[in-house]
Amino acid sequence: MTSALGYAIAGALLVAMGLAAMLLHHHLVRRLIAFNIMGGGVFLVLLGLAPGHGEQADPVAQALILTGIVVAVAATGLALALARRLHQAGGDVRLDHPSSREDDDDQK
């Protein structure tokens, strides 16, 4: 087993764990942490599966992952800001309203 494939498998595991956590938890902050774990898993997969050229790292994959991290940080920041506003507005930051069951029904 090459180290690249190892990355990919670890990444896939992280994605699965993150997804499960995201679906099982209702508290927003926990969900956001789960999302970031998922994101990390995807980056590992991307890195592991990138067509490597021996010692040389794939520049495209690295560029992608950097951008992906920026996007994930932005999303996390926005979600935290919104959650804080919601908390201030007196809302419940645990999104376990009955209708949210439908949200969780996404692809496995």
């Binding site: 997804l19 995201m22 994101g39 995807v42 979600a79 506003r85 419940d92 999104l95 949200d103 996404d106």
Partner: peptide, 20 residues
């Protein structure tokens, strides 16, 4: 805010799936 956050959570899962 609740609707927006709920949308955001769903959309982030979707984005991650797409990225994968």
């Amino acid at each position: 805010l609740t609707a927006a956050l709920r949308y955001l959570m769903v959309a982030l899962i979707a984005s991650t799936a797409f990225l994968l």
